[in-house]
Design a binder for these strands. Structure first.
Length: 596
DNA sequence: CTAGGGTTAG
């Protein structure tokens, strides 16, 4: 009766039976202790019984040690372990101790127990391999694995998974094929899940082969595996293959639908996503938020909002999808309105919500709002996400408080590339060129790989200080040292740098050499350089390109007319019309060498 | 009575 209740998880019933028992033997005490440990790891209640037992055997000890070890209470586990004889504790109880040691990071202790064992089984070895993998000590894991006297599917899976999670995926795949070639041990669904997961995040071609393996092993009816395959294809950009898998699956669940839905959205097939969404049989929050976020992130905010209104239980993620949509559309005011509505509905903002509204405050350059959100962050987040801290850095910088930005930056224990970029950009926007370049040097020394955003900050700094040679150097090193193709913004910066220094010819040549289409910023930089150096001819060319891109661009007209005025020419309507005409005539003199 | 894992949304 007691064990029947215990096995079904009815602990209080089991305890009732136990308490009412007229005669208890060791087995009934042990059963009750085991029940407490297996159901919710209630170590204290188990230990209380353990202490009250009139006599104990090795099973009592083993059960209690398992409880302590799984709860990470290794001191207590050790105490009982030392009371057991060699014969009773090996290998099972010792294995438990090994796992417990790894759990609390006591690698040396685990090794000592393992080395001291007289009888090791395959579990002892596999536990050691797993412990080393999870502690990042891959070499030791591999060495132990090679020394194993026998291996089973768990041993192989442990190391394969360990290698893949460690990032040594090539080695992981080699081990998988070795397993299949050298042994008759068959992979199971656990092995395959780990591999598919890795393939999905790495966009590895092996995913397709693993799919074949899943089918040939007869696992295609496993919904978990099927969903992983859908995910793998979606992440690799093969939505059609994902769709085929989806259609083939007999046991679809809501995750299968959601995964394919997300796949369509990530591969920008919004219409197909919409069609699929309408057919999802039992839509859950994820189905709704996936669709809402998909629309919102693709600038279709109004549709996203109307879907949001249809949603019954709106969670924080749904709200955040809309709010971040406003932020990326530059509609910061509405982002705030919605943020307040969210608070009124008593939905707690999460870290993405918070970093979005910090960005909104930055976009509005509204220090007051920014500080309020900052206070909220301090109040609600014990350890604010890096994304929040990074956006706070940008926010303070954009609101003019460069030293508050710096204070936040220095408080970040492990800054990432985004943190570095935010701070470099902040310095550079504020004209603190030395600091910006110093930070750039510092991050390179620390081994952080700069990206295109970093270089934009660096080039902006150079432009600010008129550092022509340094600017040229960094611009060149982008491609030669870091294999980053400069984008239009980088070119605009370089045109600015060259233009300010009066090297107009070089600036024009640079535009001519651009592999991408020059955008407004590039021509704007050229125009302002032409104005500074009073090159009316070049100014006209630049202005014309600006007006091609943006026919109502007032700046272009204003700059041109000022230059005419300075040159003691009249910039009347007629002159503007002339420019217009020239544009329509399609051939501006000199235009041919600028056209890309 | 011990060892390997788990898919989707911001």
């Amino acid at each position: 009766m007691l064990t029947a209740y215990a096995e079904n998880g009815h602990i209080s019933k089991a305890r009732q039976v136990f308490d009412e028992m007229p005669h208890r033997n060791i087995a009934s005490w042990n059963a009750m202790i085991t029940a407490y440990i297996r159901n919710g790891l209630r170590v204290n209640e188990a230990f209380e019984l353990f202490c009250r037992m009139p006599e104990r055997n090795s099973i009592s000890h083993a059960a209690m040690i398992t409880g302590f070890a799984q709860a990470g209470m290794m001191g207590e586990a050790w105490g009982l372990f030392s009371e057991m004889s060699e014969a009773d504790r090996e290998p099972v109880v010792a294995n438990t101790i090994i796992v417990g040691c790894f759990k609390i990071g006591e690698l040396e202790e685990a090794k000592r127990v393992f080395d001291g064992m007289r009888r090791r089984d395959v579990v002892s070895w596999s536990s050691m391999v797993d412990g080393y993998c999870k502690s990042g000590r891959i070499d030791e894991a591999k060495e132990l694995f090679e020394r194993m006297p026998e291996r089973n599917v768990v041993s192989w899976t442990t190391l394969i998974n360990g290698l893949l999670k460690f990032g040594a995926w090539a080695e992981g795949f080699v081990l998988l094929s070795r397993m299949r070639k050298e042994t008759s041990i068959e992979v199971n669904s656990i092995t395959l899940t780990a591999i598919l997961d890795t393939c999905a995040s790495l966009n590895r071609g092996e995913g397709i082969q693993v799919h074949g393996l899943v089918v040939s092993m007869g696992f295609e009816s496993d919904a978990f595996l099927g969903n992983s395959i859908i995910n793998m294809y979606c992440r690799a950009g093969c939505v059609n293959s994902a769709r085929r898998m989806f259609d083939m699956m007999i046991k679809k669940n809501v995750v299968s639908w959601n995964t394919l839905l997300a796949g369509y959205i990530q591969n920008s097939s919004l219409e197909k996503a919409y069609a699929l969404f309408s057919r999802v049989p039992h839509k859950d929050v994820v189905s709704w938020t996936t669709m809402i976020a998909g629309l919102s992130n693709n600038g279709r905010l109004e549709e996203a909002i109307s879907l949001f209104r249809e949603m019954e239980q709106k969670d924080d993620i749904a709200w955040t999808a809309i709010i971040s949509g406003f932020v990326s559309n530059g509609d910061y005011e509405r982002a705030f309105t919605w943020f307040i509505d969210m608070a009124c509905e008593a939905i707690k903002p999460n870290s993405v919500t918070l970093s979005s509204v910090v960005c909104a405050a930055a976009g509005l350059a509204n220090l007051n709002q920014g500080e309020q959100i900052h206070a909220l962050v301090v109040k609600t987040e014990k350890e604010p996400d890096l994304s929040i801290l990074n956006s706070l850095v940008s926010m303070y910088a954009k609101c003019g408080n460069i030293w508050d930005a710096y204070r936040i930056f220095t408080s970040i224990i492990e800054p990432n590339i985004v943190s570095m970029n935010s701070m470099i950009t902040a310095f550079s926007q504020h004209g603190h060129v030395e600091e910006a370049l110093e930070l750039f040097r510092h991050m390179q020394e620390k081994g952080h790989e700069p990206n295109q955003v970093t270089f934009l900050g660096v080039l902006t700094a150079c432009a600010h200080a008129g550092l022509v040679e340094e600017g040229k150097y960094h611009f060149a090193s982008m491609k030669s040292s870091y294999f980053i193709e400069p984008g239009p913004d980088h070119y605009a910066c370089m045109v600015d740098i060259l233009g300010r220094a009066g090297q107009l010819k070089d600036a024009v040549d640079l535009i001519h050499s651009m592999p991408c289409e020059p955008h407004l910023g590039v021509w704007g930089a050229l125009l302002s350089a032409s104005r500074t150096h009073k090159d009316l001819y070049l100014a006209k060319v630049a202005a014309q390109h600006i007006l091609d891109l943006e026919p109502n661009n007032a700046t272009a007209y204003v700059v041109l007319s000022n230059m005419y005025a300075d040159a003691k020419l009249t910039c009347n309507e007629e002159e503007v019309i002339t420019v217009e005409r020239a544009k329509r005539a399609a051939k501006i003199p000199g235009c041919s060498w600028i056209v890309v």
